[in-house]
Nucleic acid binder design. Structure first.
Length: 191
DNA sequence: GTAATGATCTCT
DNA sequence: GAGATCATTACC
């Protein structure tokens, strides 16, 4: 199965985030199903790294869609993001949790854990997801999507920009907690 | 130059 | 509720 093409990523960040759920993330022999993501918009989103404009660290977010934005947080955890929106428009999707399918021995239910489990580091910064070594592949499957506010941030905490697969046990613990508080939001179903 | 600050996780 | 631990940012 070929990787998702550029057009998939060149859409509004929220659409890309929701559609990434259930897709297969591959790195070398390791593969995992994406079960939890968060959308980070450009301007108007105070919680996003790219909110304060174009810097050296955030330049890929403004670049071509379908590339990886990797950064180090708290001095010890790498986080994997997928660049969305057409070139020139800021927007990215944070992969928060994946379900290990093959070639993975470590737990991957959290942004810091999944990068360690998949061997993702800063050298994947700006990597093209349509070419590899890091790729995302389609997977047709019916999903029940839950929506909740993002967590682990200080600003714009109330925006419902987190998407996850309901009932999947690999969704991170803190998401489940946030969802319990927002049952009216977590009721969306797509196919 | 230098200093403060996190899209976190684990253990106590 | 603290600690691990460092790239990026903002401000001298």
């Amino acid at each position: 199965m070929p990787p998702l093409n550029r057009a998939f990523y060149a859409r509004p960040t929220v659409d890309v985030a929701r559609d990434l759920l259930g897709k297969i993330l591959r790195h070398g022999r390791a593969s995992a199903r994406i079960v939890e993501v968060e959308a980070y918009l450009g301007e108007n989103d105070a919680a996003a790294h790219c909110a304060s404009g174009l810097t050296r660290r955030t330049r890929v977010i403004f670049g071509r869609p379908g590339h990886a934005y990797v950064y180090l947080i708290y001095g010890m955890h790498y986080c994997l993001n997928i660049v969305a929106e057409p070139e020139g428009v800021a927007g990215c999707v944070l992969i928060r949790a994946v379900e290990p399918l093959a070639g993975i021995e470590l737990p991957a239910n959290g942004p810091g854990k999944l990068t360690r489990a998949l061997g993702i580091t800063l050298e994947h910064y700006g990597s093209d997801l349509t070419r590899g070594p890091l790729t995302i592949h389609p997977a047709r499957r019916e999903l029940e999507i839950g929506i909740s506010p993002r967590i682990g941030i200080r600003k714009a905490v109330d925006l419902p920009l987190r998407f996850f697969i309901r009932g999947n046990r690999f969704v991170s613990k803190s998401t489940a907690r946030a969802a319990a508080h927002n049952q009216d939001l977590a009721r969306d179903v797509i196919r």
